[in-house]
Design a protein around this nucleic acid. Structure first.
Length: 273
DNA sequence: GCCCAGGGAATCG
DNA sequence: CGATTCCATGGG
C-alpha cells in the first residue's frame, strides 16, 4: 500500500526491499548513502532520497504520480520476490544465499547509463568504477539540485577521445564512444531488447565494442529487467565452483539473474580474504 | 616495483 | 576452436 505523507511517499509494509542491499549490491554505482542511513541518487532527471523506517520505505519529496510514472518500474515493485525466493529455496544453498540477500531488488535502470557503466566496470574495481562514472557526470552531465545527471548518449557521442580523457577511463574510452555513437544514431535498437529472444538481445548488444558476454548480461539484467540473464564474473565463477560444483541448480532456471545477485552479495560479504 | 580489479579485443597456435 | 597477452589507471 502506498500513502502520501506531506511531500513524501510511504510504501507500507514492504517485503524484500533493503536500501543498503539494493544500492550497494553492485548493480548501480551512483547512489550515495548519507550519515542518517538514507540513500540519494538521480534517475533520469529526477533526484530521489530513499530510506527505510521499520517495514516502510520512504521516498522523499515525490508524488503519487511520479511513483506511478517512474519509481514503481525503477524499483521493480510489481515483481513478487517472495515467491521467487520460495521457489529457489528448495535448494538449501540457494535458500541460505536468499536469506542473506533477500532485500535485493533488481533495478530497471536507463539502458545507455547501464551499458556505459558496465563497460567502465571491466577489469576494474568498484571504487574506481564509481570515480570514473562520477567524473563522467560532473564533466558532461547536467547539474540538478547539487546532483549531476548521467550525460546522454547524444552528448557523449559528440566528444573526442581527447575530451573524454578527463574521466581517466583508460583503454575503455574508445568503447564508451563506440557505445554512445551506436546508441545515439539508433544503430543499436534498444527498444526491442526488453522482450525479444535473449540470444538476439545479446547479439545486438555485443555489436558494441567493449561489450562481451559479461557486460552484455549485466545490461540485460540491470536495465532491461531480463532476470533470466546471468552475468558471470570472477566472483560468480568462484562462488559457482565452491557452492554448487560449477553449475546453478535447476530451480534457478528463469531467475538466474536474481539468484546471481544473491550469490554475488553472499560471496562478497562472506569472503575469507 | 608488483599485483589486482564485477572483461574484452587481438593475436596467436 | 581454446589459450594467452595486452589494455590504462589507481590503490594496496
Amino acid at each position: 500500500m502506498i500513502i502520501e505523507d506531506g511531500k513524501n511517499l510511504i510504501i507500507k509494509d514492504v517485503s524484500n526491499f533493503e536500501p543498503d542491499q539494493v544500492f550497494d549490491c553492485g548493480q548501480a554505482f551512483r547512489w550515495v548513502k548519507a550519515v542518517d542511513g538514507s540513500w540519494t541518487g538521480i534517475v533520469g532527471r529526477k533526484k530521489l532520497r530513499v530510506s527505510k523506517q521499520g517495514n516502510d520505505i520512504i521516498l522523499f519529496n515525490t508524488t503519487f504520480k511520479e511513483f506511478n510514472d517512474i519509481w514503481k518500474r525503477y524499483f521493480d515493485i510489481d515483481r513478487d520476490y517472495g515467491s521467487i525466493i520460495q521457489t529457489i529455496s528448495s535448494d538449501p544453498t540457494l535458500k541460505a544465499a536468499a536469506e542473506f540477500g533477500g532485500g535485493i531488488r533488481i533495478l530497471v535502470q536507463d539502458p545507455w547509463e547501464t551499458i556505459c557503466s558496465f563497460i567502465i566496470s571491466q577489469n576494474n574495481n568498484i571504487p574506481r568504477i564509481k570515480g570514473i562514472i562520477d567524473k563522467l557526470c560532473t564533466n558532461f552531465g547536467e547539474c540538478i539540485d547539487d546532483y549531476y545527471t548521467f550525460p546522454s548518449a547524444e552528448k557523449v557521442s559528440k566528444l573526442t577521445l581527447e575530451e573524454l580523457s578527463v574521466i581517466k577511463s583508460g583503454f575503455r574510452a574508445k568503447y564508451i564512444l563506440d557505445a554512445a555513437q551506436k546508441i545515439a544514431s539508433n544503430q543499436i535498437d534498444l527498444s526491442k531488447l526488453y522482450d525479444c529472444d535473449i540470444a538476439e538481445a545479446r547479439e545486438e548488444l555485443m555489436k558494441i565494442k567493449g561489450v562481451g558476454p559479461k557486460v552484455c548480461d549485466c545490461a540485460l539484467l540491470f536495465a532491461f529487467a531480463r532476470i533470466e540473464a546471468f552475468p558471470i564474473d570472477v566472483w560468480i565463477k568462484r562462488a559457482l565452483n565452491e557452492m554448487f560444483g560449477g553449475e546453478l541448480p535447476e530451480v534457478a532456471n528463469g531467475y538466474a539473474g536474481i539468484v546471481q545477485q544473491y550469490i554475488f552479495h553472499y560471496a562478497r560479504n562472506n569472503s575469507d580474504k
